[in-house]
């Protein structure tokens, strides 16, 4: 019911290896992969939810084997072909002739980088109607962490929180709904809430009875608890 990217709480992993401040793009190709992904995204042929879903849709064996920026590159190549920006033959003949495309009018120019990335893409929208929940309300996350619009589709409800009871800490306003937006089904904005779940509700052996995990969850992921 879930994909390999949904890692929260999984067993079997070893120590986290801290790194000193300052090192983030260890290899020059990491920087190039990051920049290429951002510049290609600026062509406007997909949104952030589609690009996350493209990484999640990598074959589970590839997802596990690839390093972080290898996932980005593989997902980028797949997205470019899926959205018709490139076709498979372009990838196969990478050393051959490459003719300019009409879409090149949309290519990101260096002079626009600061403005584009300095502004970003806010996801708050106006919502019809009132928010169903407010701070302090008791809620339960839906028992099944699956997309309800597209079978096997993108969702942001992690499996470890599915079915768990928590309380609303904050209402973040209305935000674009990834389960819809990742599939080109529209932004369908919904109220978004920070919901605190006691560790005792999530884990059989919590480390401490007072610890909590907070998740940002869209209204349709939640149901009221009396």
């Amino acid at each position: 019911m879930t994909r390999v990217h949904d890692m929260g709480g999984r067993f079997g992993y070893g120590a986290v290896l801290p790194e000193p401040d300052g090192i983030v793009l260890e290899e020059s190709w990491h920087a190039r992969a990051l920049a290429l992904t951002l510049a290609a995204g600026a062509l406007g042929r997909w949104n952030i939810d589609m690009s996350r879903h493209a990484r999640e849709r990598l074959h589970p064996r590839e997802y596990a084997r690839f390093s972080y920026f290898e996932k980005w590159l593989a997902a980028l190549a797949n997205l470019l072909v899926e959205t018709g920006v490139l076709d498979n033959s372009d990838l196969l003949s990478c050393a051959g002739q490459q003719t300019p495309r009409p879409l090149s009018a949309c290519a990101l120019r260096s002079k626009n980088v600061d403005v584009l990335f300095g502004h970003g893409s806010p996801t708050t929208r106006d919502c019809p109607g009132l928010a169903r929940f407010s701070a302090g309300d008791s809620v339960r996350a839906r028992r099944l962490a699956e997309n309800r619009l597209v079978s096997g589709g993108h969702t942001r409800l992690p499996a470890y929180a599915a079915g768990a009871c928590g309380r609303v800490l904050r209402h973040h306003g209305c935000h674009v709904f990834p389960d819809s937006n990742a599939h080109g089904l529209g932004e369908a904005p919904q109220p978004l809430y920070a919901v605190a779940f006691p560790a005792t509700e999530l884990w059989v052996n919590p480390e401490h009875p007072r610890d909590e995990v907070v998740l940002d969850l869209w209204e349709s992921y939640l149901e009221p608890v009396q």
Partner: peptide, 25 residues
């Protein structure tokens, strides 16, 4: 990454200077 960059640059879909600007940022 080199191959994909070259394909996109030759098609005019990515400007190398824009990549440099993103990395600098």
């Amino acid at each position: 990454v080199k191959a994909l960059e070259e394909i996109l640059v030759r098609k005019g879909l990515v400007e190398p200077a824009a990549l440099d600007a993103i990395i600098d940022m």
